[in-house]
Amino acid sequence: PHESIVMEGGTVFHFVTDGFDAAYARAVETAGDLGVDIAGGASTVRQALEADVIDELTLDIAPVLLGSGERIFEGRETFGFEPVEVLHSPLATHIRYRRVG
Rank of each mutant, 00 (worst) to 15 (best):
H2L: 14
H2T: 10
E3P: 12
E3W: 15
E3F: 13
S4N: 12
M7K: 13
E8S: 12
G9M: 04
G9N: 05
G9R: 07
G10Y: 12
F13M: 15
F13K: 15
F13R: 14
F15V: 14
V16S: 05
V16D: 05
T17H: 09
F20L: 06
F20N: 02
D21K: 15
A23E: 02
A23M: 08
A23C: 08
A23T: 04
Y24M: 10
Y24L: 14
A25E: 09
A25G: 08
V28G: 06
V28I: 15
V28Y: 06
V28M: 13
E29M: 11
E29K: 15
T30R: 15
A31K: 09
A31Y: 08
G32S: 09
D33R: 15
L34R: 15
L34E: 11
G35I: 14
D37L: 08
D37M: 07
I38E: 02
A39S: 08
A39P: 05
G40Y: 03
G41W: 02
A42L: 08
S43Q: 14
T44Q: 05
V45D: 03
A48K: 02
A48Y: 01
L49T: 01
L49H: 00
E50H: 11
E50F: 10
E50V: 08
E50I: 13
A51P: 05
D52S: 06
D52A: 12
I54L: 01
I54A: 01
D55K: 03
D55E: 14
D55C: 02
D55Y: 03
E56V: 05
T58H: 01
L59C: 05
L59E: 02
L59A: 02
D60E: 09
I61M: 11
I61T: 06
I61Y: 04
A62H: 07
A62W: 06
V64G: 04
V64E: 15
L65Y: 06
L65M: 12
L65P: 03
L65E: 06
L65D: 07
L66A: 09
L66D: 11
L66F: 03
G67N: 04
S68T: 11
G69V: 04
G69Y: 07
G69R: 06
E70A: 09
E70M: 13
R71N: 11
R71P: 07
R71T: 10
R71S: 09
I72G: 00
I72P: 00
E74P: 06
E74I: 05
G75N: 14
G75L: 13
R76G: 00
R76Y: 08
E77K: 13
E77P: 13
T78Y: 06
F79S: 00
F79T: 00
F79H: 04
G80A: 00
G80I: 03
F81Y: 05
F81V: 03
P83Y: 04
V84S: 04
E85P: 07
E85Q: 15
V86D: 04
S89M: 02
S89E: 07
P90W: 02
P90Q: 08
L91D: 11
A92H: 09
A92M: 12
T93L: 03
I95Q: 04
I95H: 03
R96D: 04
R96M: 08
Y97P: 01
R98C: 05
R98E: 13
R99D: 01
V100G: 00
V100I: 12
G101I: 00
